[in-house]
Design a protein around this nucleic acid. Structure first.
Length: 592
RNA sequence: GCGCCCAUAGCUCAGCUGGAUAGAGCAACGGUUUUCUAAACCGUAGGUCUUAGGUUCGAAUCCUAAUGGGCGUACCA
């Protein structure tokens, strides 16, 4: 904020001329003035008492006087203990609204020329998406939006985990117990159908283990020798050997899953520019192993396995290639990281992955750095906490998950019930109603998940429905709808006038101050990769507007200048609300 | 064992690089609708910021330790 910079440099001058001391700009703490005091901008003056050798009050008064004399926009100041509060001229704030906030591209940075990849979602194709994936998807999408608003060219990528033993499990179970069931014959969504057989497999596996235990096997033996697990392993070998029958089944079942995921993604409102498939990438990484061996970053043990020693960095020794020459997880990830960089040459790359993989990414990035990859510095693991149920962790295998599709259905249904209860859809067509319910239901869900800092774990109680009142998505959507309603009554077409009132009310000024923060909030959210900061900002903004709306009439303002000003102010607020929510992937309605 | 993360009101969460009497929402209680949408607004009540030390003019915030919870430490992904 320009005025803040002005104040800071004037305080430096003031301290220089009053106390003959040079201070650094970053030593000066500037903050918003608390609502209960007069003023908009506050400087903390405690640190200056060292140089002034006077009380905080005297020091503040002297500096305040100096700043007031040197900056036109500063109309007044007051000192409370070590806090120097400046009042900024109303004209400054109205100019601010008129010249920047009201512009349609407000908050959007110029292209920075930097390219960044955000990899998120990364599903397994053996089961439908659940609430944990929803958090991942919303986070990834929102972070991508935020980075884009900050001027980045963003590439959204999805690395699909489409092969491996877990995929074979559903395939095997379908083969043995599926009776050729298809999405068409069963009426099930493709991913749900495949997920059903993943559960069937687990049930059968457990049954066989129990049988083996009963006939005297140890638990370890039982787990290893149960017929279905051996068959699944055989199937994986056949897959790797390109067995046509297995591959055909694999392609077919994955096709069902992709169709199902496609629907879920569409409803969630997320998308991807680039898909990577593990079936294409799982053999990558061998070149990097050779590279590392040649440069001495890796070493080979007697059995032929390849390792890296990270003990000097406080980590462990890590296997990067098995003795039989096959890859492990990190081998693939090394290769995939290189592939992604070769494809896009991006400056930075974000991996949106749960915090149970913190160690893995620490190791991955460290290895790439040791291999001398210049781009390794730009890698970042956006680690987020798990979504837990009151009963504990969600487990797809055991069917104890909150399914993404079911949850969205429920949210939309609740939105419908709630809206009908309130009788708010007069004059809506059926299509408009459906769109509104979806907007509100998903708005509630998305806001619920995004308002919490990513790294915190989240508790979701299916028995307690997600709120539609208070600190929620619908609260903000409602605020937007009310503004649009007022604007449409006034036949508002865009900025009305430059003839703004000389004197602002306290709430008007507060609103502009809040709106003026928007670009800083976007920047901070990008820096921290934290949609929660946007969510909390837009909630505060909506709350403040509601207070204003309640206390000061817009359409029936005393004179035309005030009315026009308030219409512009309301319009700017609606626009910032809409943009902020857009950064969260949440749509806002004009009526609700 | 070792490592990483978390701990703020009954519940769910804010609290920026240390700064004013620690803030919201939900739940509870009370009030506001002849006036722009009451999914709103206003008020009451509710916190020794897990504990103990330390640094500082000043600590929820930084440091150390302890306690509680989560995760990791796989030739699984």
């Amino acid at each position: 904020m320009a005025i803040e910079q002005k104040i800071i440099s004037n305080i430096i001058d003031a301290v220089g001329s009053l106390y003959s001391t040079k201070i650094e700009a970053d030593k000066i703490v500037i903050q918003e003035t608390r609502r209960e005091f007069e003023g908009q901008i506050t400087a903390v003056t405690f640190p200056f008492t060292k140089f002034s050798r006077k009380t905080p009050e005297q020091t503040g008064a002297e500096i305040g006087e100096y700043v007031k004399d040197h900056i036109d926009e500063v109309t007044d100041f007051n000192v409370i203990k070590g806090f120097l509060n400046f009042s900024i001229a109303d004209a400054y704030w109205t100019d601010r609204l008129l010249n920047t906030i009201i512009n349609s591209n407000y908050g959007q940075s110029e292209p920075s020329g930097k390219r960044i990849m955000v990899e998120y979602s990364s599903p397994n194709t053996n089961k439908p998406l659940h609430l944990g994936h929803v958090r991942n998807n919303l986070l990834g999408y929102s972070v991508a939006q935020i980075l884009s608003a900050n001027g980045y060219e963003v590439i959204k990528a999805n690395l699909v985990n489409d092969r491996g033993i877990h995929i074979c499990k559903s395939m095997l179970a379908w083969q043995q117990f599926g009776n050729k069931e298809t999405p068409e014959t069963s009426g099930l969504k493709g991913d749900h159908l495949v997920g059903k057989y993943y559960v069937v497999f687990d049930r059968e596996y457990k049954k066989q283990i129990a049988e083996l235990l009963a006939s005297g096997a140890t638990e370890e033996e039982a787990k290893k020798n149960a017929p279905v697990i051996k068959q699944a392993q055989e199937m994986l070998l056949k897959w790797e050997a390109n067995d046509p029958e297995v591959k055909e089944l694999w392609a077919r079942m994955n096709g069902w899953v992709y169709e199902g995921f496609g629907e879920t993604y569409k409803r969630l409102g997320v998308d991807f520019k680039k898909y990577y498939y593990e079936s294409d990438t799982y053999l990558l990484g061998k070149d990097i192993i050779d590279e590392g061996l040649a440069s001495g970053v890796f070493f080979r043990k007697e059995d032929g396995s390849v390792w890296i020693d990270l003990t000097a960095d406080g980590l462990d020794q890590k296997l990067v290639l098995r003795a039989d020459g096959t890859s492990v997880y990190i081998t693939q990830d090394l290769g995939t990281a290189q592939l992604k960089y070769d494809d896009f040459k991006m400056d930075e790359s974000i991996y949106v992955v749960g915090n149970e993989q913190d160690y893995h990414f620490k190791v991955l990035f460290l290895i790439l750095d040791k291999l001398g990859k210049s781009w390794a510095k730009g890698l970042f693991h956006l680690s987020y906490g798990m979504v837990d149920l009151p009963s504990g962790k969600m487990k797809s295998r055991e069917g104890t998950v909150v399914d993404a599709d079911d949850l969205m259905d429920e949210m939309i249904q609740t939105a419908k019930d709630r809206t009908e209860e309130l009788g708010k859809v007069e004059g809506f067509t059926e299509e408009e109603k459906a769109r509104l319910y979806e907007m509100i239901g998903l708005g509630a869900l998305k806001f619920f998940l995004l308002k919490v800092e990513p790294k915190k774990r989240l508790l979701f109680d299916p028995n307690e429905s997600i709120d539609f009142q208070g600190h929620t998505g619908p609260f903000i959507q409602y605020t937007h709808a009310r503004i649009r309603s007022v604007l449409s009554k006034a036949l508002y077409q865009g900025r009305l006038t430059q003839d703004y009132p000389q004197k602002l009310t306290a709430l008007e000024k507060e609103l502009i101050v809040d709106l003026a923060k928007y670009p800083e909030v976007i920047a901070a959210a990008a820096k921290e990769y934290s949609p929660a900061q946007i969510a909390n900002y837009v909630f505060e903004l909506a709350k403040l507007f509601n207070k204003f709306y309640h206390e000061e009439s817009i359409l029936k303002a005393d004179d035309a200048a005030v009315r026009n000003f308030r219409l512009d102010l309301a319009s700017a607020t609606a626009s910032v609300i809409s943009k902020s929510m857009g950064l969260l992937g949440i749509l806002v309605p004009d009526r609700m």
